[in-house]
């Protein structure tokens, strides 16, 4: 065999180091013309997955909209660390109103833009709304569902770190079962968060049959950029949920943000897929299937599962959830595995 396809990625990673690619194939972040929508100098923690996700997502949306973008932001870490008055990290028009209304504020902005455009007083400006999982899956859920149902022309991005990190790591409806939070302490006969039915908003978004739904993680930033850009090719309501590890809330090392994001997918804990009009159109395949322990162990929020007597039953239940995800979202490439 004389010819071998050249691979620029390091084996086993999705590193964005893509200097050797042709310019048009490079990531938005590798583009000298990127907007730095969320500029440096903000006050996110070291290793913050949300800051990373927001930077990539909004810069990609800026490229896709030729710089014609307005953002509405829910209350939360992203809002607090980016805009301590009189400083702001936002290089784009940005508004923060309340915790639970980012989707509705974005709807209002989109309505105003539509009227202004019809009157010949404004251009084709696009709207994104963004918030954490608390602001999206809990307190902002009514406004989000309303925005979906009306098919308002808004891209909503949820940065999912599985809890209310800004207020001190309390449980949200996106907190995984068994996880320790300040309101689900690892005490008593069933330590950590309860096993409920779960509230996976991407699936609920799909049930609204909106034009585009996707999930992504900050481990695969090329995929994240691709999905944001793809979302911007649709009109109407669109939803992207990005898994963004929180070193503080998860009890994880700052340098493990990318590794944990990858493990969330590789263990089946967090399915990465996209869907159009309520039907799944693609899912990212697991490269090397791993047991959920690999994902759980590096996080102190699951430490109580791995004491002197490991909580085998609980881990098995978490594995069962991952197995179900793998089946439901077809996360295994049958030929490869």
């Amino acid at each position: 065999m004389s010819l071998q396809p050249v691979k620029f990625y390091q084996t086993g990673t999705f590193t964005v180091g893509n200097r050797l690619l042709a310019p048009e194939e490079r990531s938005v972040q590798a583009n000298m013309e990127r907007t730095n929508s969320l500029n440096s100098g903000h006050r996110a923690c070291q290793g913050c997955g949300e800051a990373l996700g927001a930077r990539y997502a909004i810069d990609a949306a800026m490229i896709a909209s030729q710089g014609q973008l307005v953002a509405a932001n829910a209350t939360g870490c992203l809002e607090v660390f980016s805009t301590p008055y009189p400083e702001t990290s936002w290089q784009i028009p940005w508004i923060h109103s309340l915790f639970g209304n980012a989707a509705a504020v974005a709807t209002g902005i989109a309505a105003a833009i539509k009227v202004k455009k019809a009157k010949g007083q404004g251009g084709d400006v696009r709207v994104v709304a963004q918030g954490g999982d608390g602001g999206t899956t809990d307190i902002g859920f009514g406004c989000l569902s309303g925005m979906f149902e009306r098919n308002d022309d808004v891209l909503y991005i949820c940065y999912d770190n599985g809890g209310y990190m800004n207020t001190g790591v309390q449980r949200s409806s996106a907190t995984p079962p068994a996880a320790r939070t300040a309101t689900t302490m690892p005490v008593g006969p069933e330590p950590g968060n309860a096993f409920g039915q779960g509230k996976f908003v991407p699936a609920i978004a799909m049930a609204h049959e909106i034009p585009y739904v996707a999930t992504a993680t900050v481990a695969d930033l090329r995929d994240l950029e691709y999905k944001v850009k793809k979302a911007m090719t649709f009109r109407g309501a669109r939803y992207i949920q990005i898994l963004v590890p929180c070193p503080l809330g998860w009890g994880a090392a700052s340098h493990d943000t990318i590794r944990l994001s990858r493990l969330a997918k590789e263990t089946g804990t967090f399915p990465v897929f996209e869907a159009e009009y309520g039907e799944i159109t693609s899912s990212s395949k697991i490269r090397r299937l791993l047991p959920v322990e690999e994902y759980l162990k590096p996080q102190k929020r699951f430490a109580h599962l791995f004491g002197k007597t490991p909580a085998i039953d609980t881990i098995a239940r978490l594995q069962a959830i991952a197995d179900k995800n793998i089946r439901r979202y077809q996360m295994l490439d049958k030929e490869a595995n």
Partner: peptide, 22 residues
């Protein structure tokens, strides 16, 4: 004219549209 899903959304939509100059 937007039929929204709650009064909380009504005022929130109003905030967005007014902030966008309408």
């Amino acid at each position: 004219f937007l039929n929204v899903e709650s009064e909380f959304a009504a005022m929130s939509v109003a905030i967005g549209s007014s902030a966008a100059g309408a």
